[in-house]
Design a protein around this nucleic acid. Sequence first.
DNA 1: GTTGAGCGA
Length: 296
Amino acid sequence: MATTSKTSWADDVDELEQPRLPKIEETVDENGVRTTIEYTVNDEGKKVKVTRKIKRVLQKAVVEHAVAERKTWAKFGKEKGNKPGPDRATTTVGENVTLKLTAGNKATEPEPSEDQNIKANLAKAGAGKVTCRLCKGDHFTAKCPYKDSLAGLDGAETPPIGDEDGLGVAEAAAPVPAGPSTGGKYVPPSMRAGAGARPGEAMGRPGGNRDDLPTLRVTNVSEDTSDNDLRELFGSFGRVVRVYIGRDRETGIGKGYAFVSFEEKAVAEKAMAKVHGMGYDNLILNCQWSQPREAR
DNA sequence: GTTGAGCGA
């Protein structure tokens, strides 16, 4: 339905655009107060006059030379002949956005979002630090130097399952106390507190972890040597507790070294003497005592 | 060339 006499949509544009263009007068007085008076037409078609006074706080201007120099350039195009600086009627001055290049993005996170703040506050107690659950030192529990002596002293007592009837477990518990709970998990008797010895010792084996075992570092191992090969080789001297072959994590190819842990130091010593310098898979094996990983 | 993986608050 044609209701207008317009011949071109461009007329519409003219009529719409014309009144919208705000007229702005701008003055700056001797105190540095900038006054802008803006005339616009609002939605109801009424003329509106908006006066803004902006007081600039004077500060020692630190301006880059190149920037200062640019200000004096003659304007061109529609701004030709205008005074220096941006004309607020035509130009919006936004905030400076600076791009910072840093190595990694963790150290200079700009401003934590709100929920990050909440999380940070929740974590305040620990303040991002690690506290040993056994000795309260600032290392992980697993690395606690006292973990052998303190392990099992933590936590609340939990009655054993099936003790609701008051019979059974509690009665039989006299000789071997249930000991501190480990969170409902089964704990073999040898591992329970009060068992007297540490797990390995109960079996007549020294030490609880690999760093207590007499361990040889074997280097110049060919890359297709398997831990079974080494078990066979070293097993002839005595019990081999553990064999580890250093491999590339991605490819799984041997990196040429291995660790062999024995039960007895004397056996390890003998094995070292025999194997060191021994030819194996076209290479000559090299055997030395291994330093515990942490000691290095 | 050659001294171990992984778990975690």
